[in-house]
Write a protein that binds this DNA or RNA. Structure first.
Length: 571
RNA sequence: UGGGGCGUCGGCAAGCGGUAAGCCAGCGGGUUUUGGUCCCGUUAUCCGGGGGUUCGAAUCCUCCCGCCCCAGCCA
């Protein structure tokens, strides 16, 4: 990879953005008061039922980041309690993504399924204390008994079974004596509790399904509310950080830990999940996009998944910087995609070499340049950082420039090439437009005729005369054809999730591939994932779909475009 | 209509009784062999609204308004 190495991942932070967030404030306070002996232990607990996306990145940066800042630990724990949805494919990719983002769980890789035996014992303990019972009601009946938001629920007729009967039934549930869905284990709390989560929540259900790790050992599986708090306690977590929608569940988190002989009682803190405009960040919607073929897979560069962003050319640093800058708070918010794009540009600007590519070529013929002659120009790979070195760029009589860099009848503020006007070909020569050749049938310009000034070799005029524009170019006979994949927002509206079918707002132009794109020969066989700046166009990276001599480039993000701004402002 | 949360610049977000940080976006200017980068300047007399407490409030009290979450044997 030609890219510059990143600075120390853990140390890499933007020198701006918001100050410490409320979670870090709590941690700081707890350390000051020696609450856990100064210890900080967090965890990132994904369910292996999908690929990680930017929302997870926020959580990863928070959990790993906050731990790292205090010499603490952060476990990677798979919350794998629902075998019907989970698979090893996901546990694999999640590990890859966390590592790629630059975080290390230092061997503390855990699975909730590893705790199944202990969880079972805790359930037995609850039954023995008269705090849990086996219920024979169906799912529908349980729902009917739950009551409403404003009205209390009703007790199940099975609520007052004896401890012995409950124990007996629960063992037989475990032993597979009853069919799926026929019985559940429920906590005995309060069917009139104002918090619906506390109306005798289900703790265990029967699922005669093979689990990706425990196989057929179990046919009863614990639910989230029972599993998560105990997993945290078993791991000695000090700060259990999750998103706002789990706030109602905190009462149950605490209830379970208070009523069972748990080794400790971690505290749960909730923060607002990330929303990004012009995309969706919900596993359900993302999986729909993949399954219905609206994108080419989980790693489609248009996807807000970690794999998608990676393939698009985003760096781990840019994503981490982004997460630092958006902050962590308790209010719902939607972050502007422009901030994410700013973060990649910032990172790539410093780390990636500059090269020439022409997306929409038009031929330039330099009339006074000898036919058949080629000279090799040595061009810096990074004009602001000599350590990048230089690369050879062939120059000859026929070149390609960007079609948009020429106008026959230019408006006031256009100062690129036009008839009679002189511009600079970067690192090469000044050229002056002498005329154009058009297709007689369509009127389209097929060739721009120019003359060059040999005295301006390198790009400066000895007589000191100036030009207003500098153009990138590629020698026609040396040009390497490429597939350039240009991406736009996945959706046409800022909030595609807002009511109705989000798929109705899919952007038909989210991927465009201009025919005829070419690059300089230096780019013919660069490694996949290497990042480049095509001068004046944007940041690109080599896609894994590349074939030898036929590279495929993804445009990560375009450069800021002052001219586009002027055009837009001018109507 | 129950319970739990949240409302500070166009978008994020600090602030925690002493008189509104920062970032992105926008706008204006400088430098420039990328209309890029970089640099400088500019952008809330005001903190959802009304009352109140106080010498003093975005910060405390109170009422109102708005938004989010909860009725999975999902997480």
């Amino acid at each position: 990879m030609a890219d510059k190495p990143a600075p120390n991942p853990a140390a890499a932070k933007p020198n701006d953005g918001p100050g410490p967030d409320f979670v870090r404030a709590v941690i700081k306070e707890d350390i000051a008061t020696n609450k856990h002996g100064g210890r900080v232990a967090t965890r990132f607990p994904p369910e292996p039922n999908g690929y990680l996306h930017m929302g997870h990145a926020k959580s990863i940066c928070l959990n790993f980041g906050a731990a790292l800042e205090h010499n603490g630990t952060c476990n990677l724990r798979f919350d794998d309690t629902n075998p019907v949805k989970e698979s090893t494919e996901y546990v694999q990719s999640i590990q890859e993504d966390v590592r790629w983002l630059g975080f290390d769980w230092q061997g503390r890789l855990y699975y909730a399924s590893d705790y199944f035996p202990k969880l079972f014992d805790f359930a037995v303990e609850l039954i023995q204390k008269g705090l849990a019972y086996v219920d024979d009601l169906s799912a529908d009946e349980i729902r009917e008994h739950r009551g409403t938001l404003t009205g209390p629920g009703k007790n199940s007729p099975y609520r007052d079974r004896s401890v012995e009967e409950n124990l007996n039934l629960f063992m037989r549930m475990r032993d597979g004596e009853f069919p799926d869905g026929s019985r559940v284990l429920r906590a005995k709390i309060d069917m009139a509790h104002p918090n619906l989560v506390m109306r005798d929540p289900t703790l265990y259900r029967i699922r005669k399904v093979r689990h990706h790790r425990t196989g057929d050992t179990w046919c009863i599986y614990p639910l989230y509310d029972f599993t998560h708090c105990l997993s945290d306690a078993l791991e000695g977590i000090t700060h259990s950080i999750c998103t706002l929608e789990f706030e109602n569940n905190r009462a149950l988190y605490d209830w379970v830990l208070d009523n069972v002989s748990a080794p400790c009682h971690p505290r749960q803190y909730e923060f607002a999940r990330l929303n990004l405009n012009y995309t969706v960040l919900s596993k359900r919607k993302l999986i729909t996009l993949v399954q219905e073929g609206h994108v080419r897979g989980w790693d489609d560069p248009r996807m807000p998944t970690i794999k998608g962003l990676r393939r698009r050319g985003y760096t781990p640093e840019s994503i981490r910087f982004f997460c630092e800058r958006i902050g962590v708070a308790r209010r719902d918010s939607t972050v502007d995609m422009a901030l994410l794009e700013f973060c990649v540009r910032e990172d790539l600007n410093a780390r990636v070499p500059r090269v020439f590519g022409v997306l929409n070529p038009v031929k330039v013929v330099i009339e006074n340049y000898p036919e058949g002659q080629t000279e090799t120009i040595t061009a810096p790979l990074h004009p602001e950082d000599a350590s990048f070195g230089a690369r050879p760029v062939p120059f000859s009589r026929e070149l390609y420039i960007e079609r948009e860099d020429f106008m026959e009848d230019p408006p006031k503020k256009f100062y690129r090439l036009a008839p009679g006007r002189e511009v600079r070909l970067r690192y090469a020569y000044f050229i002056t437009c002498a005329g154009v050749v058009k297709d007689p049938a369509t009127g389209e310009i097929t060739e721009i005729r120019c003359v060059y000034d040999p005295a301006t070799k390198g790009g400066d005029a000895p007589d000191g005369r100036k030009v207003k524009a500098t153009l990138h170019w590629v020698s026609a006979s040396h040009a390497v054809p490429v597939e350039a994949r240009l991406y736009g927002p996945l959706f046409t509206v800022p909030d595609p999730g807002e009511g109705g079918d989000f798929r109705a707002h899919l952007n038909p132009k989210s991927l465009e591939i201009p025919p005829g794109a070419v690059v300089e020969p230096w780019l013919a066989d660069q490694p996949a994932e290497s990042g480049w700046q095509f001068e004046r166009l944007g940041y690109f990276c080599v896609d894994k779909d590349s074939a030898p001599g036929r590279p495929v480039f993804n445009r990560t993000v375009a450069l800021k475009d002052e001219w586009a701004r002027i055009q837009k402002a001018g109507g």
